[in-house]
């Protein structure tokens, strides 16, 4: 005879009681019909959100100075993308989880050079523009020290940037072709051509929007719209939806950690929260194996409500 002790949170007693008729197919059919009707009702009543995508065209027309400032940021290396690190470039080591430099170890697999990919290459695709051709030739003919010096001089005046008569003006001298480059890129953006140039960089077909999305996210236009929709990370935006629709409410715990210390002030918050959520998911997964945790249901006795008929029989 087995004398293994009965563990109430691991073993289940053998059921020797009654059985009742159960029509599993009927139950499934009813469930599909009820949920189907509910889905049709909710879809008819509330619909679903579809806020139009912004374009670089709408951005640069709505706020040419923000666009030009971002474009300059891509040249002087001050934007989020330019300073990102892995997987786009080596400008930063990326976040680390204690000694684990995960982003850095994963390497640069989606290379993005903001000057080349966001500014020079798109402009090089513009036909029949002698001024631009000259400016690009001057840029490409200069060494990097010269390029840096031009951009740096232009950046010093960028705080006083103005927009008038379709031109970006910055009071700065010894700036080489930079004003022409910034103005031509702004014109290109306002015409809609930059949207296309950034996605077609890899040929005729594409399904990859990495470059235009990174560029757009470097400006303030997208974030300002998101803030109005209450979508910023600091607004628990991860679980929110545009309009007044419910969003990914199941991400509540994930977004919660970002709001509290130490994560809210940590420069490694993303990787720390991911690690914590990974750990918590593991706890949930392994719950049946964890002494203490697996005893909670037996001790809180909610099961008495569920099986009250059984216990009163």
């Amino acid at each position: 005879m087995s004398t293994k002790p009965f563990r109430p949170d691991v073993d289940a007693p053998e059921y020797k009681g009654k059985y009742a008729p159960y029509d599993i197919i009927r139950e499934g059919t009813i469930a599909v019909i009820v949920v189907g009707l509910l889905v049709v009702l909710l879809a008819t009543l509330f619909g679903s959100p579809d806020e139009r995508a912004i374009t670089i065209k709408t951005w640069s027309n709505a706020n040419p100075i923000d666009f030009a400032t971002t474009a300059l940021g891509e040249m002087n290396g001050s934007t989020i993308t330019a300073q990102y690190g892995g997987p786009y470039n080596t400008a930063a080591p990326g976040q680390n989880l204690g000694p684990l430099k995960l982003a850095q170890w994963a390497g640069v697999t989606i290379p993005v050079n903001t000057v080349r990919d966001f500014v020079i290459n798109p402009l090089s695709s513009v036909p029949n523009d002698p001024d631009l051709k000259l400016a690009l030739a001057q840029w490409k003919g200069a060494n990097s020290a010269q390029q840096t010096s031009w951009v740096s001089n232009y950046s010093k005046g960028a705080a006083k940037m103005t927009w008038s008569h379709g031109l970006i003006n910055v009071p700065a001298t010894n700036v080489g072709p930079v004003p022409t480059i910034i103005n031509k890129l702004t014109q290109m953006a306002r015409s809609g051509a930059l949207d296309q140039a950034l996605v077609t960089g890899s040929g005729f077909y594409t399904t990859n929007y990495t470059k235009p999305l990174l560029f757009v996210a470097d400006g303030t236009y997208l974030a300002n719209l998101a803030q109005k929709q209450h979508l910023l990370g600091s607004q628990w935006g991860m679980m929110n939806e545009t309009g007044s629709y419910p969003g990914q409410a199941w991400l509540w715990l994930y977004t919660f950690w970002y709001q509290v210390t130490p994560f809210s002030t940590s420069s490694n918050a993303d990787v720390q929260v991911s690690a914590l959520m990974g750990l918590l998911s593991l706890l949930l997964l392994l719950l049946p194996l964890i002494p203490g945790l697996r005893s909670i249901p037996r001790k809180v006795k909610v099961y008495r409500l569920i099986w009250r008929e059984h216990y009163s029989a």
Partner: peptide, 18 residues
């Protein structure tokens, strides 16, 4: 969030097709 874990090197959320 995804890039910080290193997973972004394979799982590129900006790549619509992927």
């Amino acid at each position: 969030g995804i890039n910080a874990t290193g997973a972004g090197s394979i799982f590129n959320v900006l790549n619509l097709g992927q």
